[in-house]
């Protein structure tokens, strides 16, 4: 009787917890499972395939564990007991073979998808891609639109259904740019330029973060990605063009100083070569002395 009550209680508690979890999941945005762009969508598909393939091993293992623990418990004297049975070629072949097959399938998928979803690979489209240069600062994100000659801090407006080509570097410790609903992340490193290609298929404002610790203001390195249609995007461009701020190299050096200010700033014009200058800052030994001095100041 007592055990019955216990079992019922355990089932009730489990059901309650599962119910709560589902309630939470259905009322919140599970960004990775709620893709709004083709890359994030493909990545989610691959995530589901991998989970299903893994389940082919995990579910039997869990069932087997429960079954064997129950059947061969010490008090069950009816169960067969063979203390010397320690080898069975057929069984052993089976549990080498099953994982080998599953991992082989997964390996083929990994090879194909690693290439098709390579972040450096441009998206195929008949539309001209939108180029954005991204610079991770301490502790803000700067987005430069080289073709439009505008720039923005902590916001990266894009057009829907148009490939976005990001070039990413850092003027700070290593960061990682991640917009979960649009695409997986890639590192932002100083003196180097990484690439990320993505698009948005649905209008919305998506959240972007830095996923790699970069100092005390790291948690505040969030930015928004408003994805809109042509008209709204052009409106935003016009608004940026009206801004009084101009991003010269001197102004940039002001901006690059450590700050936890998370305000959005727009620039109506940008030094044409700014992105390369920021990269070359770390590549030219001749500028080195200045650099060390400046970086030392950053740390204060």
């Amino acid at each position: 009787m007592k055990t019955k009550i216990r079992v019922v209680l355990a089932i009730l508690i489990t059901a309650f917890v599962i119910g709560l979890t589902f309630n939470y999941i259905s009322t919140h945005n599970l960004a990775v499972l709620n893709p709004k762009g083709v890359i994030a969508f493909e990545e989610r598909k691959l995530l589901f395939i991998t989970i299903l393939l893994s389940a082919l091993v995990v579910v039997p293992v869990f069932c087997l564990t429960i079954f064997i623990s129950w059947k061969y418990r010490e008090s069950n004297k009816k169960a067969k007991y063979s203390p010397h049975w320690d080898h069975d070629p057929k069984l052993e072949f089976a549990w080498w073979a099953i994982p080998v097959v599953i991992i082989s399938i997964l390996a083929v998928l990994t090879w194909q998808y690693s290439h098709s979803l390579d972040p450096f690979k441009p998206l195929q489209s008949n539309k001209q891609p939108l180029h954005v240069q991204v610079i991770a600062l301490q502790w803000r994100w700067l987005f430069i639109y080289p073709d439009q000659h505008v720039a923005a801090v902590n916001t990266m407006p894009i057009q829907i259904n148009r490939p976005i080509n990001l070039h990413i570097t850092s003027d700070a410790p290593m960061n990682s740019i991640w917009i979960p609903q649009l695409a997986g992340q890639i590192y932002a490193m100083s003196g180097m330029s990484t690439k990320l290609h993505l698009d948005a298929r649905h209008p919305g404002v998506y959240k972007g973060v830095s996923a790699n610790i970069s100092g005390k203001g790291f948690a505040g390195m969030t930015f928004s990605v408003p994805a809109t249609n042509n008209k709204e995007f052009n409106d935003w461009m016009k608004k940026a063009k009206k801004s009084n701020n101009v991003l010269t190299y001197e102004k940039y050096n002001e901006l690059a100083k450590p700050s936890t200010n998370r305000q959005v700033i727009l620039y109506s014009d940008v030094d044409n070569d700014l992105y390369n200058k920021v990269i070359m800052k770390y590549m030219q030994p001749s500028n080195g002395n200045n650099m060390t001095e400046m970086d030392m100041n950053h740390a204060r």
């Binding site: 990545e43 691959l46 990994t110 997986g184 992340q185 996923a211």
Partner: peptide, 11 residues
């Protein structure tokens, strides 16, 4: 271990 999935879950 699947790189494209890792892009979404890393860190």
């Amino acid at each position: 271990a699947v790189p494209p999935v890792d892009f979404q879950l890393h860190n």
